[in-house]
Design a protein around this nucleic acid. Sequence first.
DNA 1: CCATTTTTATAACGATCGATACACAATCGA
DNA 2: TCGATTGTGTATCGATCGTTATAAAAATGG
Lengths: 213, 213
Amino acid sequence: MAERGRPRSFDRQAALERAMDVFWERGYQAAAMSDLTEAMGINSPSLYAAFGSKEELYRAAIHHFAATESDDILAPLQSEPTARAAIEGYLMASARIFTRPGRPPGCMVVLSAVNAVGVGDETSRLLREMRAGSVTMIEERLQRAIAEGELPAALDPHPIAGYYVTVQQGMSIQARDGASRQTLETIAQGAMAAWDGLTRPRAVAREPALMPR
Amino acid sequence: MAERGRPRSFDRQAALERAMDVFWERGYQAAAMSDLTEAMGINSPSLYAAFGSKEELYRAAIHHFAATESDDILAPLQSEPTARAAIEGYLMASARIFTRPGRPPGCMVVLSAVNAVGVGDETSRLLREMRAGSVTMIEERLQRAIAEGELPAALDPHPIAGYYVTVQQGMSIQARDGASRQTLETIAQGAMAAWDGLTRPRAVAREPALMPR
DNA sequence: CCATTTTTATAACGATCGATACACAATCGA
DNA sequence: TCGATTGTGTATCGATCGTTATAAAAATGG
């Protein structure tokens, strides 16, 4: 069962984490191979043997980001008892994660490849699906709240989820501009001020809470 | 008064607009000199003679963007009679400008250099000041509404302005992901649902509308 | 017409980009 | 111990990056 050949002299997972930090901070295009190999403590042939290419390494870093940072942000959607607390927790967790000391500010999935140029179709699709995945998760949480009677049955979860994800993505930009955790938390509270208006039951087909899908 | 030497064979302003489109769509780093010269219809020596360098051309493009697109977005802040209509107009104008057919989606100032790497300090500062300028303009509009008695005197305009600018920046990300004008308008309406909660007068120092600056 | 000035197109500069060829080192099974 | 296999370090590949040297072209003033 033992591996054949010369064993790898570096920790693949640790090197991936260092690569993630480089992509996270500099973005995909601005992250040069020399930046990556220096941060990972290896030479480029080792990088290519272990990860395939720069873009494959980037995708691996995105998946690692999703398995660590993203999960911390999305956890409140499952753990909080009410839909309102779930979304508030989602935004407040974002404020905390986006301003962790010593870590790049904002969300890697949102910031590291906003301009899809220079990145392949597969990677572009992966990023877009991940961003859309947040909308789906919030949507499902709202749907659950409707099923449990917390929210009115006539409510359309999709535009509400889209609104809160948009706020969270704006918070990434703000974090990149130097906004503090406190500032981001204030923004999150501002977004929650829309909750009652968005979820209040109202006469159907006369004044919809939010318009189209 | 006539110019000496061989006259320039291209329209400087028209070339600048085409360069703006390239930076807007691809971002600063991904916009190669060959992309720019091809779009502008000139050779690189002409570009350098007319604009100095790639980064100076980028700054000129940013200023041109501010003088055209940005002004359309910020106009409702001055023209609308109430603070609420002003901010709603700001968001609805953003939804329209961000999804103009045949134009790059989203805001160039927000999207074209999110990762400040590879761009000089002067350009980085210019972009950050422009983003902060939107907050200031909204803040001043809210302050005017307070002076006119439309909003309670105890209100702090700064966090409210920060909240709405954050939503607008999130709308840029959404536009880049393919959101339609209608979708962005729905998000804008969602953000306006927070208005009453954010501007309602309340007991001072007990439950502040939004926390710190 | 000629000297001067500015722009033009061609061609190429050094630097850096992502990616590899190559020879050597280190492990395995037999 | 030896062939097979895999990883490592060096050195470099062709392509492209932003930028510029050079000389011809097109205007001016005198």
